[in-house]
């Protein structure tokens, strides 16, 4: 067996990509925007971040580029849904398909290339893990204690009321979408730069969708997102440990665990809480004035 510290490090590491992506999506959804393109933005961040880290030898630059790439891709979604008033479900889905295609197209030269190594931070955790943990209280504070956070929540709960009060619905939402994109990009880059250490096509393998489920699971709260990410990280590590330990269950069946646990968590939360989703979530905002 392995000791407890190693296990905790592994769980925290496995939780980090979806923690980032889910925190970003949390902000977008609290602003009333349902962006199903998380998977697409994550994979874009995974490739852009890997490419930049490989070219410069600096993981830090890699993560910065990943954030920019995720945000840039999210702006396609932002302009379409906020200004061309498209259906958010369909547009988000298109973003995911587009991101997966685009990265498959431009990722070929990076296959089989190794990532530069990342510096260890305090307690044997790299600084992106720390950044993710730090982001949770910051986002909690932003949403619940700051004035811009209050405006953002107001827009998400009832965009017509917020508009009537003079708040700029579309710019705020665009900013929330961009933040969501940047966070998804960082989460994706964590997979390619810090865990897998290389680029492979479609490597996010549904992490973006799990992040979306996590936001529902959290009841749209930052602390809930953290708890969900740890739960998911735990299941992932447990599944990998069981594989390594040679348990008499086919590998492919063990690999289903994270997806099944996500479904189970969704069911339990939805049954218990009903829907606590922001009032205007996923609705098109149109005004003539």
């Amino acid at each position: 067996m392995i000791d407890l510290t190693t296990l905790i490090v592994m769980i925290l590491s496995a939780a980090t990509p979806i923690l980032f992506a889910a925190l970003g999506e949390l902000i977008a959804e609290r602003a009333g925007v349902l962006n199903l393109g998380v998977e697409g933005m994550m994979i874009a961040g995974a490739l852009a971040g890997f490419a930049a880290a490989h070219a410069t030898g600096s993981p830090a630059i890699g993560f910065a580029v990943a954030a920019i790439a995720g945000a840039a891709l999210s702006m396609i979604f932002g302009v379409l849904t906020q200004y061309l008033l498209t259906n958010q479900v369909a547009t988000g889905l298109a973003l995911t398909l587009f991101g997966l295609g685009l990265t498959a197209l431009f990722g070929k030269p990076y296959e089989g290339v190794k990532a530069p190594s990342m510096a260890q931070g305090p307690l044997g955790l790299n600084w992106i893990i720390w950044l993710g943990l730090l982001a949770v209280p910051l986002i909690w504070w932003f949403l619940n204690r700051s004035r811009p956070g209050l405006i953002l929540r107001g827009i998400g709960e009832n965009h017509h009321a917020a508009h009537a009060l003079g708040h700029k619905v579309r710019p705020v939402r665009l900013a929330a979408i961009a933040f969501g994109g940047a966070m998804a990009g960082i989460g994706g880059a964590y997979i390619s730069i810090a865990t897998v250490l290389q680029w492979t096509e479609g490597m996010t393998a549904g992490a973006g969708w799990i992040a979306l489920a996590l936001v529902v699971f959290s009841g749209w709260r930052a602390v809930g997102v953290l708890a969900g990410a740890w739960l998911f990280g735990g299941v992932t590590v447990l599944q990998l440990r069981l594989q390594a330990a040679g348990v008499n269950v086919p590998v492919q069946l063990l690999a289903m665990a994270p997806y099944l646990v996500t479904i189970l968590a969704l069911v339990l939360i939805s049954a218990r809480r009903g829907s606590a989703s922001p009032g205007s979530l996923g609705q098109i905002f149109h005004t003539t004035s």
Partner: peptide, 26 residues
Amino acid sequence: LRNWFGASEILVSLMLVYVAQKIAAW
């Protein structure tokens, strides 16, 4: 799952894609 528990059919149906892929591999 949507009718009984109110779980999002978008997320559940998508998760089941990955489960089906693993079943195919198995």
